[in-house]
Design a binder for these strands. Sequence first.
DNA 1: GTCTATAGCGTGATAGAC
DNA 2: GTCTATCACGCTATAGAC
Lengths: 191, 191
Amino acid sequence: MERKPNLSKDLILKTSAQLFSEKSFSQVSMREIAKVLNVKAASLYNHIQSKDEILEAVIFDLVNIFMTTIEETSGKTIPTAKKLEEIINTYISIAVERPDSFATLNNDWKYLKGDTRNKFIASRILYEKKLEAIIIDGIKSGNIKEVNPKIMIYQMLSPLRNIHLWNKKNHMTTEELKSQLPQLILNGILK
Amino acid sequence: MERKPNLSKDLILKTSAQLFSEKSFSQVSMREIAKVLNVKAASLYNHIQSKDEILEAVIFDLVNIFMTTIEETSGKTIPTAKKLEEIINTYISIAVERPDSFATLNNDWKYLKGDTRNKFIASRILYEKKLEAIIIDGIKSGNIKEVNPKIMIYQMLSPLRNIHLWNKKNHMTTEELKSQLPQLILNGILK
DNA sequence: GTCTATAGCGTGATAGAC
DNA sequence: GTCTATCACGCTATAGAC
């Protein structure tokens, strides 16, 4: 409910992400996005090409952050536990600071179409491969339990991809989460 | 792609759950469900009242199982670890044996409307309350780490609610999962 | 109990005035 | 750059013939 629009692509993306996260991409209409911004739906098309483009922009904005940070973490020469903690903290930061985009990424990526969808899936596979490499490395150096790495990835990522759902009910600060969640997740993983 | 229909409510529910799990409730049309069953969309309405009714039936079929089993487990006089293992195994059984309904329950409950939606949310809250009671009991009797029970529930349920996603890639039998997942989940929880 | 035909509605997107 | 008006389409659901 803005006063006067001053419409921009960025504002449209922000508003859309918020609405997507409350319902779902498919349940939010262009008319609805426009209404929140105090404009008519047609006006949105001066700043964006299509509804699909909004979804793509919201999602890949975060995808790029995740891919960049895991690349950085992988390249560091620090203990495995520290690497995993960095990864967990990235999820926490993004889930707390940008909950709407984070929810859209995790809930609505399935509404991506064609090449964009394939690109997303490829990114996700690559991300999990990078994480697997870190875990395998940790097993070799004796810092991580000898459990199937794929199961471990699943055990790690399932809670992380749902922080936003859970944090909606139990509002915690980034600091509180960072001081508790990593230990909780890693306690079952580290020796 | 059935041969000749022999249409029934049960068959419609089964087929719908499969399609919902592949895409999403909102992305599956009545025409599409009908096509798989080799009938016209209008024919479906001789067996069901509405598309919403299909979703409700698919979801509450499983909700009732989950509510019944946690009630049973709560009433038993067995160690906390055994109770949690039972709960975990219920998820595994359902996720493996009825993956389509399980996926629909976890992904598409948000498309439930009105009272039905409220009833679902109330069930989920009640389920988590029952689980919390078991955990608090375990903390008191010294069998469970002294961590915030709400965080523990989240750590337990996040992976369990996503078994279907993960098991689609790494096909495991019910037995394999039951011999590995509970320990993995509980190792981080049990002393 | 399945069919054809269609009502009634909401959607994403566009054309063209201002 | 926002507006009004509207197009073209797909959807759920119903009416009525067979």
